[in-house]
Design a protein around this nucleic acid. Structure first.
Length: 499
DNA sequence: ATGTCC
């Protein structure tokens, strides 16, 4: 048996790309890392493995705590982590959702080709930057009153449709159709609403961006055709979340849960894993508030996408409908959702159990820096894609391009229908700023790769330099070879705006 | 990620 040792954590290689931390002590389940040996080596450099092992102490953990190939350490629970916790006798943990509730990505198609856009890059990047709010703090596409915030929290993209920021087709191509019905705006604090009300339609900062890209490869012609993707086509990728509103909501509930559920907290190896027991008032309240913040983030991405259509109309002098600027798909990668999955007796993996003992269980599936990747035939895959599988969008760094995958056949058995969410950081923001200077990175991207980047701050470009990220090709290779998310297409940046 | 410490 091949083993891998890192900082007192031992992993056994189960098979290609599957590594397991054996259950011992207070662990409720084993833990699994899905990675190549090279990625595992990178993952082992920070606290990810310790956090993954800690996560198995959460009540109701089912099968395994799982770390994706792009995993790195986060608040309490790894970014790139999946934890399915029993919704009846388990718990829900804000740290296993993440501070940026419904951080996610959407991809919009166009019928433009790269040759039509080449030569317009600077005009396009300037116009996008001028029209799409970005950076820290306030300023959004719509400046609205608190009544609208309440509606957005309750109804998600349905609000955008009613207010002229969306078309019906946009809703059909979004995870959960852009609305969590269990949202309860009354459980979102006034402070969070105040922070959100002037940030509706804004990118934010950090790794959030809007990128115009060209499709460089279509690996699967049938699925590529179903997704409306072909080589040389221009697409737009939008990556952002719920801004200050989601951050405040996460913070509010962490503090409340720490105070009210000290008994559970005392059983956990890390205070940052603070969790509310299923069925408790705070579990209900957090779930309602989190779902409301999820709706807010979907509206945020929707408004940015719709504004992008207007920018393209001005730059290319034709209507967005004429340019067929349709939403391909929007996927969340920081969420928890009550889902039904087939599990074996005592929360063991169904695939490794006697099938007659398997049962359907309601689970809070926490995907933190992990993307839903439902296979073909799943009822929650939009009708347009049901025969091929759910689109999965994996953004790479601004110098490396991105991938479109489709949910793979093995995802339900291995990962509760999930895969990776990006390249994953290799170094801290502080170290990145020591190693890189924004202006140099920007100039190099433009001169060497014809990638036009515009940001509010040079520091953000340094923090997001291509070299601070893992190899997205390797992350996607692992996903594809495991069969949890299959490669469909690859894109390369044309221009990028960020905070 | 985040009015990067109420």
């Amino acid at each position: 048996m091949t083993t891998f040792d890192a900082n007192g954590v031992t992993l056994e290689r189960v098979r290609e790309h599957v590594w397991e931390i054996t259950q011992e002590g207070e662990m409720r389940t084993p833990a699994r890392v899905l990675a190549s040996e090279a990625l595992l080596e990178e993952i082992s450099q920070d606290k990810t493995l310790e956090q993954l092992q800690n996560a198995t102490h959460l009540p109701g953990m089912t099968n395994y705590a799982i770390c994706m190939p792009d995993g790195h350490q986060g608040y309490g629970f790894p970014v790139g982590g999946v934890g399915a916790l029993d919704a009846e006798d388990g718990c829900i943990s804000p740290g296993a959702v993440g501070y940026d509730i419904n951080c996610g990505v959407r991809m919009m198609r166009t019928n433009l080709t790269y040759s039509e856009v080449k030569g317009h890059e600077e005009e396009l990047v300037d116009s996008l930057f001028a029209n799409i709010p970005s950076g820290l703090g306030g300023g959004g596409i719509v400046e609205t009153g608190i009544d609208d915030v309440e509606e957005i929290l309750a109804r998600g993209v349905d609000w955008a449709l009613e207010n002229g920021h969306a078309v019906e087709d946009d809703l059909l191509h979004c995870e959960d159709e852009g609305m969590r019905e269990e949202a309860d705006p009354s459980k979102v604090s006034q402070k969070a609403k105040d922070r959100g009300k002037n940030q509706i339609g804004s990118l934010g900062s950090g790794n959030h961006f809007l990128e115009v890209q060209r499709v460089t490869d279509v690996f699967d012609d049938e699925v590529g055709a179903a997704f409306g993707l072909e080589e040389d086509q221009i697409v737009v990728l939008i990556h952002c979340g719920s801004r200050g509103l989601g951050h405040q909501t996460c913070n509010d509930y962490l503090r409340k849960i720490e105070r009210q559920h000290q008994g559970l907290l005392s059983q956990l190896p890390d205070k940052e894993l603070a969790a509310a027991p299923a069925g408790s008032q705070l579990a209900e309240d957090y779930y309602g508030a989190m779902n409301a913040a999820i709706n807010f983030a979907w509206v945020n991405r929707q408004l940015i996408m719709h504004r992008t259509r207007r920018v393209f109309e001005r730059v290319f002098d034709r209507s967005w409908e004429e340019m067929e600027m349709d939403l391909l798909y929007d996927v969340a990668h920081n969420i928890a959702k009550k889902e039904t999955h087939t599990v074996g007796p005592d929360g063991r993996p169904a695939a490794e159990s006697d099938a007659t003992a398997n049962e359907e269980r309601e689970l809070f599936v926490h995907r933190k820096g992990a993307t839903r990747a439902f296979p073909k035939g799943h009822p929650e895959v939009p009708a347009a894609y049901r025969d091929v599988g759910q689109p999965v969008i994996i953004p790479g760094s601004m110098g490396a391009g991105s991938y479109v995958l489709r949910g793979g056949e093995a995802s339900m058995d291995l990962t509760f229908g999930s895969t990776a969410h990006g390249a994953g950081r290799l170094m801290s923001r502080t170290q990145a700023k020591n190693d890189y200077w924004g202006g140099d990175v920007q100039q190099e991207l433009e001169e060497q790769d014809q990638i036009y980047v515009k940001a509010q701050s040079g520091a953000t470009i340094a923090e997001e330099a291509p070299g601070v990220y893992k190899d997205v090709d390797e992350v996607v290779r692992v996903s594809d070879e495991l069969g949890i998310g299959d490669k469909v297409a690859r894109t390369f940046p044309v221009c990028n705006i960020k905070g």
